[in-house]
Simulated assay, not measured.
Amino acid sequence: MIAEGALVLFSGGQDSATCLAWALDRFARVETVGFDYGQRHAVELACRAAFRAALSARFPAWAARLGEDHGLRLDALGAISETALTREAEIALRADGLPNTFVPGRNLVFLAFAAALAYRRGLRHIVAGMCETDYSGYPDCRDDTIKAMQVALNLGMERRFVLHTPLMWRDKAATWSLAEALGGAALVEMILEHTHSCYLGDRAHRHPWGYGCGACPACELRRRGHEAYVTQRTGHPAR
């Protein structure tokens, strides 16, 4: 175990929930931060408390390391973003090939605010769920972007933060497998039940892979990953 503390960017989604478990398995003290930037799927923020509570109840050793949760409002980010995540618009590909769910600068802003919070809280390690193996093509999820941000934050704040992205080279099936390796079937079930990925914020429909509309890109990615995970685990196609 690493004796230092960590701050996890915890949105309430599958990836950040897995990252939270990853951090609790490694660091002596772990705090979380979530961002409200006017996202359409703000229901993900409501899932955060339920997941933290379930995690603490099921894993006492992790509960002892789980510290304060922080919520930060970043309304300006939503106000300046003309995207399908911050406006009532149909999800589609843009002319440049990026999905219109891309919120320019979002992860850069998140990491800057997380580092400022970590600075105040005395936390050296910052953990986030960015991934470029199985993702929507967002440029601020790329490994080069995260490495560049680490350099900028350390120079600008005169600190030696370490940015961890444990999912960077894992596809969604591998992310489910990581959750199972960290916390067994109990953690997998908690992620299914208490996290949210659907861009439309649909919590009315429960699927084998969790809640969602079943049609948006986030649901499709989560569904395919879970089906591949089940197939790899059982040797039989998911039903």
Score class of each variant (00 low, 15 high):
residue 63 A to I: 02
residue 44 E to Q: 12
residue 124 R to H: 10
residue 83 T to L: 10
residue 122 G to K: 07
residue 220 E to I: 09
residue 65 R to V: 08
residue 157 M to G: 06
residue 195 T to L: 02
residue 126 I to L: 15
residue 104 P to Q: 11
residue 179 A to P: 01
residue 217 P to M: 03
residue 66 L to F: 08
residue 47 C to T: 09
residue 92 A to C: 12
residue 210 G to V: 01
residue 67 G to P: 01
residue 211 Y to L: 06
residue 20 L to Y: 00
residue 189 E to V: 02
residue 67 G to T: 06
residue 8 V to D: 03
residue 172 K to T: 05
residue 134 D to K: 06
residue 23 A to S: 13
residue 1 M to W: 14
residue 13 G to S: 07
residue 38 G to L: 09
residue 93 L to W: 07
residue 22 W to V: 08
residue 195 T to M: 05
residue 79 A to T: 14
residue 210 G to T: 02
residue 193 E to L: 04
residue 72 L to N: 08
residue 56 S to A: 15
residue 35 F to R: 02
residue 133 T to G: 07
residue 82 E to W: 13
residue 210 G to C: 05
residue 178 L to E: 08
residue 205 H to M: 11
residue 1 M to Y: 14
residue 144 D to E: 15
residue 40 R to I: 06
residue 199 Y to I: 07
residue 144 D to S: 12
residue 134 D to I: 02
residue 77 L to W: 01
residue 47 C to V: 06
residue 52 R to P: 02
residue 221 L to D: 06
residue 137 G to D: 13
residue 93 L to Y: 12
residue 72 L to K: 01
residue 188 V to Y: 01
residue 184 G to E: 07
residue 227 E to N: 14
residue 118 A to I: 08
residue 208 P to S: 10
residue 83 T to I: 07
residue 25 D to M: 03
residue 8 V to C: 05
residue 102 F to S: 03
residue 33 V to E: 01
residue 75 D to P: 09
residue 192 L to H: 04
residue 228 A to C: 06
residue 156 G to K: 08
residue 109 V to L: 15
